[in-house]
Computed example of a mutant assay.
Amino acid sequence: MIDIHCHILSGIDDGAKTMEDSVALAKAAVKEGIHTIIATPHHMNGRYENTRAIILEKTALLNERLKEESIPLTILPGQEPAIHGEILEGLENEEIQTLNDTQYLFIELPSGYVPRYTEKLLFDIQLKGLIPIIVHPERNQEMVEKPDLLYQFIKKGALSQVTASSVNGKFGKKVKSFSEQLIEANLVHFIASDAHNLTSRSFHLENAYDHIHNRYGVDMTYLFKENAELLLEGSNVLREVPQHVKKKKFLGLF
């Protein structure tokens, strides 16, 4: 498996604290069947500022350590930039790191709302030849209340990535239910761990794929796994026609 979202680089955000933590996460990833991880430290989220140069250096150091310990895991450079008005400048200044130096770029929204300039920024990013991927939309409160926001973003070219722990119910029944609604509406293109540690925020990726397989069948599972591979290559990912979310009311009644 490939995990495109993980906070495995040590000492630069709220993920792994030490190199030993990084190694422990790597061992857990391999045990789960993950062979490649894109390291995606936070950037410009009000707490952390991890530029491309820092990420490349940290990625190289971790790969060296994993090689020394004969851990069969490859770490690739990525980043989780919080949405902000200077993202395009950050790209020009080479402070922003795309996922494995491809055309795919993570965008993290605030947890409580969707900024008014989001649609324009996503459009401007695409004008630069990049494809924005909205991370964990299922945990954005305004998205939950107004899922048509995500529909419009996806319809206009953006992609989205849902967290494995959301699919598994680790973030609660409401988030799990909304994640399933997004999947059913073809508004999800990737499943990734967003792992931070081995206690409260671990991988759970294999379990998430099992759940998706049991609920939606092999084709949906294949789509998500294949998209992770296509992303690494910088190829066009698989997309189904996006649908409007059918908002479920209490007790699952429409």
Results as ranks from 00 to 15, higher is better:
Ser22Ile: 06
Lys128Gln: 14
Val175His: 00
Asn214Thr: 13
Glu57Ser: 11
Thr102Arg: 05
Ile96Glu: 02
Val114Thr: 13
Ile34Leu: 09
Lys249Pro: 00
Val237Tyr: 08
Ala53Gln: 12
Ile38Pro: 12
Glu138Pro: 10
Ala158Gln: 05
Val30Met: 05
Ala208Trp: 07
Gln243Gly: 12
Ala158Lys: 03
Met220Cys: 10
Gly112Asn: 14
Asp21Thr: 08
Leu251Cys: 03
Asp101Trp: 04
Lys17Ala: 13
Leu25Asp: 08
Ser179Asn: 09
Ser10Gln: 07
Thr74Gln: 14
Ile133Gly: 14
Ile154Gln: 06
Glu240Ile: 01
Ala208Asn: 08
Lys170Phe: 14
Lys67Gly: 05
Leu231Asn: 05
Thr74Cys: 09
Gly33Leu: 07
Phe106Asn: 08
Tyr117Glu: 07
Val188Trp: 01
Glu145Arg: 12
Arg47Gln: 12
Glu180Asp: 15
Ile96Ala: 04
Ser166His: 07
His204Ser: 15
Ala228Lys: 06
Glu142Asn: 02
Pro137Lys: 00
Val237Leu: 05
Pro115Gln: 00
Thr36Gln: 12
His5Phe: 08
Glu64Phe: 11
Glu20Lys: 15
Phe171Gly: 04
Glu142Arg: 03
Glu119Ser: 13
Glu32His: 09
Ile8Leu: 11
Asp124Trp: 08
Ile183Lys: 01
Ile2Gln: 13
Ile154Cys: 01
Val30Thr: 13
Lys225Glu: 15
Thr221Lys: 12
Met1Arg: 04
Phe224Lys: 02
Leu253Ser: 12
Asn100Gln: 09
Pro242Tyr: 06
Asp148Trp: 09
Ile125Arg: 10
Ser179Ala: 15
Arg52Asn: 11
His213Ala: 13
Arg201Ala: 07
Thr74Phe: 07
Asn50Leu: 00
Asn93Gln: 14
Arg116Asp: 05
Leu121Asp: 06
Asp101Phe: 13
Asp210Glu: 15
Gln181Met: 09
Gly11Ala: 04
Ile38Ser: 09
Phe153Gln: 12
Leu91Asn: 03
Glu138Asp: 07
His244Gly: 02
Ala24Pro: 00
Asp13Cys: 09
Thr36Asp: 14
Ser160Met: 01
Tyr48Thr: 14
Leu205Lys: 02
Phe153Ile: 03
Asp148Pro: 00
Thr102Gln: 04
Lys170Met: 08
Ala53His: 12
Thr199Trp: 03
His136Cys: 03
Ala24Leu: 13
Arg52Thr: 13
Lys17Met: 02
Phe178Lys: 01
Leu121Trp: 11
Lys248Pro: 11
Tyr48Ile: 06
Ile87Tyr: 00
Thr98Glu: 01
Met143Gly: 00
Ala26Thr: 11
Ile34Phe: 12
Leu56Lys: 14
Gly78Gln: 07
Gly234Pro: 02
Lys225Pro: 08
Asp124Phe: 11
Leu56Val: 12
Glu32Arg: 06
Tyr209Val: 00
Gly78Cys: 06
Arg201Trp: 08
Leu149Glu: 10
Thr98Ser: 15
Lys67Val: 10
Met19Thr: 11
Leu232Cys: 14
Pro77Ala: 11
Leu238Asn: 11
His204Gln: 12
Val144Thr: 05
Glu32Lys: 02
Ile38Met: 10
Ser22Met: 04
Leu73Pro: 13
Met19Arg: 03
Pro137Val: 00
His84Ile: 02
Glu92Asn: 06
Pro115Glu: 00
